[in-house]
Design a protein around this nucleic acid. Sequence first.
DNA 1: AATACGTCCAACCGCGCAGCT
DNA 2: GAGCTGCGCGGTTGGACGTAT
Length: 256
Amino acid sequence: MVRAPCCGIGVKKGPWSPEEDETLVGYIQRYGHGNWRALPKQAGLLRCGKSCRLRWMNYLRPDIKRGTFSHEEQETVIRLHETFGNRWSAIAASLPGRTDNEIKNVWHSHLKKLVSPNTSSREPKKKTNGGGSRSKKASEPITTQPDTDSENALFVSAASQAQSNSDFSSCATDSPTVSRGISDDARGSFSSDAFPEIDESFWLDALSMDESAASVDLPPVGDEHSDLLVSFDSDDMVFWLTFLEGVEDLQELSRI
DNA sequence: AATACGTCCAACCGCGCAGCT
DNA sequence: GAGCTGCGCGGTTGGACGTAT
């Protein structure tokens, strides 16, 4: 059994023309995008649904914020990367108007150098079997140590903000690009005064992480929850303790 | 001015997950 | 429960563009 290729013969690839953009935007504005696979045919586009979705999500959506990342946005990305690792969609959910693809690009071109100056902005290209490794290991958080004072300053600034800014309510966004780990419902659920409509799976992850942290038998690297395990330093501990207290409060509420 | 090199970003690719049959 | 399908995700790439020599 072989999965049928997403994009068959006769499907156009490469950069989108303004006419294609116009067609796609016009169609979605009129009919929405209920079925991405059927959309290009219905809209009269010689693209695969996947390509249409990507174009819409990363470029044509009306709520996309374009332009360079502000300092605050960069710090937010760094801070969230500490927490989420390479789960770009989760990070994007906290940056309204920014897409996971854009954040990923900014990370690889700018921010990675700030956090990990010793690594080149672009690793030597290695031929792979394609991306596809949306595996757990791909989400391993990068634990790095800044080398210079200036870079350290930004690093520490971002880290400290991670604790002070435990209120993620500002993270709410209309972006549909949301990971399954941190769902729509989970977005904004870090508010200090309430935990509304929290995705159960998210908390199950969080709770299992709590157990893992408390247990002697830490899960091995590559465990399905390893992407949630950040490198704990004393500052991180404050953040996570605050976070886990919220989890415990939630457990109490759920028992009532 | 020409060339080499580096950077950035849009787009592609393949896979995992969830829902449906 | 197995198979199929669609969606969403993260990794990677190609080429345009900018900068240095």
